[in-house]
């Protein structure tokens, strides 16, 4: 039987002692991976895996990574939306892991949108 060991969770809990958790909505950047049927079929989960790995490597604690449903632009999947507190949200389309990694490095970490992959600059926000 493969089961999470309580000791492992305790270890994580202890390592977090004294650190402050940002509440949802307090993050500097919110990344939304569009995870509708269309997105999933086009590879959205691979994009989520890539971004999760980048997030882990960066050690950033002010970036929220989440998912949403179909955005109505199914032929442009996989898509992500980046909402940076200081600028307009950007939708990125027709992604692959390499593009997603570049967007993470340049937009999420450095605040410079990657216009090469952007569908549009500025749309609805949920941040």
């Amino acid at each position: 039987m493969s089961k999470l060991r309580i000791e492992d969770l305790k270890r994580i809990k202890e390592s977090m002692a004294g650190t402050v958790n940002l509440r949802a909505g307090d993050q500097r950047v919110k990344i939304t991976v569009h995870m509708g049927t269309c997105g999933i079929a086009a590879g959205a989960r691979t994009i989520m895996n890539t971004l999760l790995k980048k997030l882990e490597e960066s050690g950033a604690n002010d970036v929220m990574l989440t998912s949403s449903g179909c955005a109505g632009l199914c032929n442009h999947e996989p898509m992500i939306t980046i909402e940076d507190r200081d600028s307009a949200p950007v939708k990125y389309v027709n992604l692959n892991p390499e593009k997603a990694a570049r967007i993470f490095d340049e937009h999420v970490m450095n605040g410079t949108p990657v216009s090469d992959y952007a569908l549009s600059m500025g749309s609805e926000t949920t941040h």
Partner: peptide, 25 residues
């Protein structure tokens, strides 16, 4: 070959020190 996972139990064990979306978790 069995695997079992319950996020309610994980959350309870973490006691709010971190979220379940923490990369370590």
């Amino acid at each position: 070959e069995k695997i079992t996972l319950d996020t309610q139990a994980i959350r309870a064990e973490l006691e709010g020190t971190t979220t379940i979306t923490d990369p370590a978790v």
